[in-house]
Design a protein around this nucleic acid. Sequence first.
DNA 1: CCACGGATGGCAACAACCTGCCAGCGCCGA
DNA 2: TCGGCGCTGGCAGGTTGTTGCCATCCGTGG
Lengths: 219, 219
Amino acid sequence: MRTVDAVTIVHDEQELFQRTKHLFMTATEIACAANDLWVWAWRHQPYDITALSDVQRRTDMRVRKIYRADVLLDPGASHELAKRRDEFGAQVRVSTEEINETIILDDRLVILAGDSRAGRRSYSVITQAGAVQGVTSLFEAAWRSATDLAVYDAKIAEIRRLAPQVLDLLGQGIKDEAAARALGLSVRTYRRRVAELMDALGAESRFQAGARARELGLV
Amino acid sequence: MRTVDAVTIVHDEQELFQRTKHLFMTATEIACAANDLWVWAWRHQPYDITALSDVQRRTDMRVRKIYRADVLLDPGASHELAKRRDEFGAQVRVSTEEINETIILDDRLVILAGDSRAGRRSYSVITQAGAVQGVTSLFEAAWRSATDLAVYDAKIAEIRRLAPQVLDLLGQGIKDEAAARALGLSVRTYRRRVAELMDALGAESRFQAGARARELGLV
DNA sequence: CCACGGATGGCAACAACCTGCCAGCGCCGA
DNA sequence: TCGGCGCTGGCAGGTTGTTGCCATCCGTGG
């Protein structure tokens, strides 16, 4: 495949689909970073990377996905991810870092998703070897520092159990001491839970936590 | 109109529309409380109280609307509201209090909107005279303590001008001192702006402010 | 020109939050 | 049974945030 530009910008998801589906069909190695459950969804139309590659029938394909930690705060997401991972024989890890949404095919092609907060999303398709290698090494670094889904899930189970109540109390503006009493915890432990929740949300302040929780529909 | 129950619960907005449109057609006094721009929208389908009443051609109708203050943080909303107010000869006020979304027709019928956060919204339609009078007096109290649109708008203009930058800094987790420097303000003044913004958002904590701002699409 | 009002900024008291440290306790595995 | 590990809760130091007070400055209107 020859392209004049180092980077091709695609504004339409359908077009991205058309341009790259043949590559997905033949790819043997797919790496993805997603910031929510449905980005590069396993079967979510229109862009289902696994439908494209028909991964269920091929055993020579290696699929790796990194999710952002806050996805796991959704009670159903954890189970769903584990199910898909097993169904497709994929590897799934979780990161508390913010990762740009990315797909890497066979270390040959990279798709970088642009910011979706500004309305219609654009995608950058890169095939230039040096750039692909650069992005790939960034992905590998993120992969290495991420935590296996099962391990992270075990750690976050208690946070997830409490999250609805903690978020509800925070959402009501209840001060930590009163909130702790409401949950039958000491204020130290309540503040530990809040700190863990903020970490899972990737938030550095309570304002950010509020915005992120609202964005995720948790509050 | 005779009804057996004191309160009729309606789950479908279309049904509510069908049941009450004849009353809107003949009403001479409409009072509304709305928590966002589009609730009981002037022309927003399917439930446009002014389309129903054809207020544009009738001069015997008195329309009063109270909006929640955070609506005015939307740069376009203020102008839009002023335009509609003039177009329909209505009175519009703004309140920083949380007001249940309500319509009162001729002090005879009350529609109370239920919580929309739990999926499909339900509406309570009340015609029992005592209850109608009770809700009406609550509305009157809210109306009296609310601020005229023009007056409130003048006050909030500076807040609205700064709001995008302040919210952006808060959203990035920037501490107050650094944020103040970024905006060329003293930390006292920056904190005044944050307090005013939180008041306009109806937030009692920064977590609430974050959630509310995200909900309004301001961050 | 002058007085008044409103906004700013500095200071400060207080409240709320953040996180480290450590003792105690309970559970689990050797 | 005992030791180790992890969690909780209390304490505390520090940071961040909240809001009142007051001096100063600037703009406006009489």
